[in-house]
Design a protein around this nucleic acid. Structure first.
Lengths: 145, 145
DNA sequence: ACAATATAGTTTCAAATGCAACTATTATTT
DNA sequence: AAATAATAGTTGCATTTGAAACTATATTGT
């Protein structure tokens, strides 16, 4: 039984899970230098994209649980990467702001993600990579209405 | 800031993690009727594709940790879905065989996976879905040499 | 043949994650 | 305006998961 046969019936779910695990493992090591775990990566990324959003917005964008967000932000605060501030208009909302320290590591951090992506997708052409990203976007767009 | 902008800079890693989480959550509920968790799904799937492979082979195909495999198989055995047998030639290897019970649930089980896939990819055309699957295969092929 | 190395699997421990129940604040209904 | 419902976040508990160290068997090198 060759390798194509082995994977031929695997579902999308299995692929995504495998890619997630491989990425977690890789990023765990990379994030150690920032004193963070692989799970924090997405939160930093989302905040680089839009600084100052609330925990609830983070939860929605990352498609995770609010508990996970709360704990991730708590850790990021503890490590000095973010500041948390209660919204003046709606006191239920906590706004998360990136610190200087967070911007200081931005380049190294995004490089680590880029490196991982390159490694994971090394078998794809530039064009295929773009197609894959576009399909991912399209999947997400279908969910966010 | 509209939804496209929000996701426009997200990396492949973030997408895969989100898809994995969404799938885990969905499959957790589905797997309850089999007395299993979402993590067992991939092991059953791999065994339906090739019955009687060793734990080590399972670990490699699912791209997980051997600890995770050991525990998953232990649970599947406990629930009567598999039988484990020490290889006669190499006593280090444990071969995992599907039971009748495993084949009995096969249809319902694969249906659950199909349903999830449909739900996740509902925004994609049939053709796009095929492209996505093909790209996933290609990514994996690059890893397995 | 024996020592060193590699491989398959298990055990132990620590970290990540999710669900349910909770508090605090805001919005809606009557 | 008071009661009810909805929303944002937190806490506690249980489950899942992975890394490191371990045991048992097999392979390799001399």
């Amino acid at each position: 039984m060759n390798i194509q046969d082995v994977y031929k019936d695997l579902s999308i779910t299995t692929f995504f899970s495998a890619f997630h695990r491989l990425g977690s493992s890789y990023m765990s090591k990379q994030m150690k230098s920032f004193n963070l775990g692989h799970g924090h990566q997405q939160f930093l990324m989302a905040l680089y994209i839009e600084d100052g959003i609330t925990q609830d917005e983070l939860t929605k964008r990352i498609a995770t649980d609010k508990v996970t967000t709360a704990r991730a932000i708590s850790k990021l605060k503890e490590e000095g990467y973010v500041l948390v501030e209660v919204d003046s208009k709606d006191k239920r909302c906590h706004r998360v702001m990136l610190s200087k320290k967070a911007y200081d590591i931005r380049e190294d951090f995004t490089q680590a993600i880029t490196d991982w992506q390159k490694q994971l997708l090394n078998n794809l052409t530039e064009e295929e990579e773009q197609v894959l990203l576009r399909l991912c976007h399209k999947i997400v767009e279908g969910k966010s209405e």
